[in-house]
Amino acid sequence: MSLALTIDTEAWRTHLANFADEAPGLVPVAKGNGYGYGLGRLAQETSLLAERNPAIDTLAVGTQPEIAQVRAGGWHGDIVVLTPWSRFDGEEVLHDERVISTIARLDDLAAAQSVNPRARVVLELMTSMRRHGLPVEDLGRISERLGDLQVEGWTIHLPMVAQDRLGEARALAAGALATRRAPLWLSHLTAQEYDTLRGEVSVPTRLRVGTKLWLGAPKTRRTTARVLDMHPVHRGERIGYWQRRMPTDGWVVVVSGGTANGIALEAPTAASTMRQRAITLASGSMEAAGLALSPYTIAGKKRFFVEPPHMQSSLVFLPGAGSVAVGDEVPVQVRLTTVTVDEIRG
């Protein structure tokens, strides 16, 4: 029984290599669930990219505990931790010569110095994301507080959608470089925006990329679930934990994958267009009526859940005559950043 991710490894690695060739200063990002592939696998793939392109010398992780996971996966280069270090975190990371910590608050800058005056750090600037960062108005106070810290650069984490993202990056870069000349670490610029900014500054630039790198070639992978069991049901018959009535004759199909895998546990969507909002509204209306469309495709169509997914399996309803058999694998559309698969093939 498994929810499986099958990779066309050769095609995927061709995509990764081409992406790296077109992104000078690339810093791959491996965080969370490893974009569905797992942190260990991403560490291996980054190592292969580095063998081919020695300029890839740094891997970004989301949190401090992920450092050990990518090292166990075989990454031996530098590691930058994206979540800013604070005085409430462990101090060992500031003594690790292969780790670069992010600093995003003046108080934490002073605290880091007290732990290791020569710690390797990048300084994050506040952007319109409004998540982490040193305010631009504090830049004048920063230069006198850096002491002997090894400043590896300024990091600018931009929003994914903005009217003038390049303009924001330009303004922040100008303020930062006027304070201290150091490399620029950038996120969420398009290739064209990145190339433009690279040509305008006289310091090295690094481009941190996760989703577009690892998930940028959808045809190189597919996710499937196995049909575990199936039972004929009749209209009006009550089934499942919640004894819901069946709307018509058909089959209850038991498929692998449930809440333990993240099935139907989705993150909020960024519904920014009228069409996206209409789809969200329609989905919410169906769920209110007890009808929730599942991510499983059987006989060419996505099918409705019979009830909320179970821990390790899900019940979906197939109207009419059965067209699958126990043991078949069926496509399941998942968001790999929120799903944990049982098996990776390839």
Rank of each mutant, 00 (worst) to 15 (best):
M1D: 10
M1I: 03
A4E: 13
A4W: 00
T6Y: 09
T6V: 14
W12G: 00
T14N: 10
T14A: 15
H15Y: 12
A17W: 06
F19Y: 15
A23R: 15
A23K: 07
A30R: 04
A30M: 07
N33V: 10
G34Q: 05
Y37N: 01
G38V: 04
R41V: 08
L48M: 10
L49M: 13
E51D: 14
G62W: 05
T63A: 13
P65S: 08
Q69T: 15
Q69K: 12
G77K: 03
L82T: 04
T83I: 01
W85T: 02
D96L: 02
E97A: 11
D108V: 04
A111P: 07
A111Q: 06
P117A: 14
R120V: 02
M126K: 13
S128V: 09
E137G: 09
L139A: 08
G140M: 04
R141T: 12
G153I: 06
A162H: 13
D164V: 02
R165M: 07
E168I: 04
L172I: 03
A174C: 02
R181Y: 00
A182G: 03
W185N: 06
P204S: 11
T205N: 01
L207G: 02
L213C: 01
T220Y: 05
T223A: 01
R226C: 05
V227N: 03
D229M: 07
D229Y: 11
M230W: 12
H231D: 09
R238N: 08
Q243Y: 01
M246V: 07
D249R: 08
V254Q: 11
V255R: 02
G262V: 09
P268H: 03
A271G: 04
Q276S: 14
A278K: 08
I279V: 15
T280R: 14
T280W: 08
A282K: 08
A282H: 13
M286D: 15
A288R: 15
G290I: 08
S294Y: 10
S294M: 10
S294I: 08
P295L: 05
P295H: 03
I298A: 06
K301M: 10
F304H: 12
V306K: 02
P308S: 12
H310K: 05
S313E: 12
S314E: 06
L315Q: 08
P319D: 03
S323T: 14
V326Y: 01
E329S: 09
V330M: 05
V332D: 01
Q333W: 01
Q333E: 15
R335H: 15
T338L: 07
V339P: 00
T340Q: 10
V341N: 00
V341D: 00
D342V: 00
R345H: 05
